[in-house]
Simulated assay, not measured.
Amino acid sequence: MSFKCDVCGKGKATGMQVSHSHIRTKKTWSPNLQPVRAIVNGTPKKLRVCTRCLRSGKIQRAI
């Protein structure tokens, strides 16, 4: 299972972490994914959704 948002597709980002002495090491940033029961096509389904999609109301949560 990939570490991606099921709504917008946001995934891990990669880059370099640069120290004060300019030593560079590889670093990954993970999205803040939350397990959520949401209504998809009229039925509740478990999704992994980033907090930006939750906050903006892109999904309807199941009760």
Rank of each mutant, 00 (worst) to 15 (best):
M1V: 15
M1I: 14
M1L: 15
S2T: 01
S2F: 04
F3W: 12
F3E: 09
K4C: 03
K4A: 07
C5K: 09
D6L: 10
V7H: 03
V7C: 05
V7K: 10
C8A: 13
G9S: 07
G9A: 02
K10F: 06
K10I: 04
K10A: 03
G11E: 09
G11F: 12
K12H: 04
A13R: 15
A13I: 14
A13C: 15
G15W: 04
M16C: 10
Q17M: 13
V18I: 12
V18A: 05
S19Y: 11
S19H: 13
S19Q: 14
H20E: 05
H20R: 14
H20C: 11
S21D: 07
S21K: 11
S21Y: 08
H22C: 13
I23Y: 11
R24G: 10
R24D: 06
R24C: 15
R24W: 10
T25I: 13
T25H: 14
T25M: 15
K26V: 09
K26M: 12
T28D: 08
T28S: 14
W29D: 04
W29A: 04
W29Q: 12
P31Y: 14
N32F: 06
N32D: 01
N32C: 07
L33T: 15
Q34P: 02
P35A: 14
V36W: 06
R37V: 09
A38N: 01
A38H: 02
I39M: 09
I39E: 03
I39H: 04
V40E: 00
T43W: 00
T43P: 00
T43Q: 02
T43S: 02
T43H: 01
P44D: 02
P44M: 06
P44E: 02
P44I: 04
K45D: 00
K45H: 00
K45T: 00
K45L: 08
K45Y: 00
K45V: 01
K45S: 02
K45G: 01
K46A: 03
L47N: 01
L47D: 01
R48A: 05
R48K: 14
V49L: 06
C50Y: 01
C50S: 03
T51S: 06
R52Y: 09
R52N: 07
R52P: 00
R52S: 02
R52E: 03
C53A: 11
C53L: 12
L54T: 00
L54K: 08
L54W: 02
R55G: 02
R55K: 13
S56L: 09
S56V: 13
G57D: 01
G57S: 06
K58S: 06
K58D: 00
K58F: 02
Q60P: 09
Q60S: 04
Q60V: 11
Q60E: 08
R61G: 06
R61L: 12
R61E: 10
I63R: 15
I63E: 13
I63V: 15
I63Y: 12
